[in-house]
Amino acid sequence: MSSMGEHLFQSFFLIFTGAAVIASLALYTRQPLLVAYIALGALLGPYGFGLINDVNLVTEMSHIGIIFLLFLLGLDMQPKALLSVLQKATSVALISSAIFAVMGYIIGYAFGFSHQENLIIGMAMMFSSTIIGIKLLPTTVLHHKHTGELMVGLLLFQDFLAILCLMILLSGDLGKVDPQQFGMTIAALPALGLAAYLFVRFILLKLIAKFDRFHEYIFLLAIGWCMGLAEFASMIGLSAEIGAFIAGITIATSPIAQYIAISLKPLRDFFLILFFFSLGARFNLGLLGDVIIASLVLAAAILIIKPITFRVLLGRMSEKKSLAWDIGFRLGQISEFSLLIVFMAVTNGMIGDRASVLIQATAIMTFLVSSYIVIFNYPNPIAISDRLRRD
């Protein structure tokens, strides 16, 4: 076995054996598993015991989990239902994102970060976590209930906003966006949707109908379609996540969509463990002392202001008070997109290490605390209490 292969095998051994041990402890002590995976990353990563020093490969692989998650989301969304959900969620998503961005900017300014760093801090605060929001939502609620529809609509609209933010960062200057590149990207979205629809209608569905008794082939075809469209989307200036989501939507009406969704869930979970591990492993504990107060203030502001904002905005849309609070607390954290924004901004030299650690610390704190709030108070698949556990 090559040294690269040995290195990868050893990393997988440490991650998954470690995850099995620490997950067992977490369940015995009634802690959410997601917390265990992040803690394991911090322990084993380069800023902990240093047993896994190169987390780039693990991070790249974990990205596949997010792609599968969005593909499965698309599989559960009928195109007509998606349009009505987006219509309902648009105003709430736009107003709430503006409030969170301004809040992030003001707190960054109060702690002495530069104007450009504050813009990026504000940008990172706009989004809520698709992974936590969807993973802690019972499957029955996600598929069949108004709460699930509204949450998915809000998260999807935030994902579109996140793509726009990443495009701005890719230009390398917050004050200047290339109008030609921006226009091409906006035009690419409906073009990708149409091309995917035509391919599914005239090729993919015919292949599925002809060979649907070969389960291995259907599994392979689904992965190929998801990854292929994700890669194509990133080639034309969109994100792999958007491509995967469109791949899912275009076969959502197929009778075999639910079979594909069930088949891919274990694969998605495998990569999501890698995602949360890499999140913990990339966290630079050495710089935490410099930004601990700022990150505590920012995290507290997110955890308090996000639920209140969603409660008020959804209440104005005549949603029930209990449902508005439920959605507000489920979306009361920042997002994996926030971490992607940090990565892009650092790569382009737009923010310093302190601002980077501030956003990462805020992400981890809000991930943990909001997960606890949902797990102990709202129906979810990993609740400690039998009363709240819903699969």
Rank of each mutant, 00 (worst) to 15 (best):
M1E: 03
G5Q: 07
F9D: 04
S11Q: 14
I22M: 12
I22E: 06
A23Q: 09
L27H: 14
Q31W: 07
Q31C: 02
L34V: 13
L51S: 09
V55W: 04
L57R: 12
H63K: 06
Q87G: 10
S96I: 00
I99T: 01
F111L: 05
M123H: 06
M123F: 14
S128F: 13
S129M: 08
T130V: 08
I131Q: 05
I134D: 01
L137C: 10
P138Y: 03
H143C: 03
H144P: 02
K145E: 15
L161K: 01
A162W: 06
A162D: 01
L164R: 01
L170I: 03
D173P: 11
A191E: 03
L192S: 09
A195W: 05
I208T: 09
A209M: 05
A209D: 15
K210C: 08
K210P: 08
R213N: 13
H215N: 11
E216S: 10
L221Q: 10
L221H: 09
G228C: 07
E231Y: 12
A233C: 09
E241Q: 11
G243Q: 06
G243T: 05
F245I: 00
G248M: 00
I251G: 03
T253E: 09
I256Q: 00
Y259G: 07
I260E: 07
A261C: 04
D269H: 10
L272Q: 10
I273P: 01
L274R: 01
S278M: 03
F283P: 02
L288P: 05
L288D: 07
D290K: 14
V291I: 15
L298Q: 12
A300F: 15
L303D: 10
I304T: 11
P307C: 06
G315H: 09
K320G: 06
L323V: 14
R330E: 04
I359P: 11
T366V: 11
S371I: 03
Y372N: 10
I375K: 09
Y378R: 05
N380T: 14
A383D: 13
D386R: 11
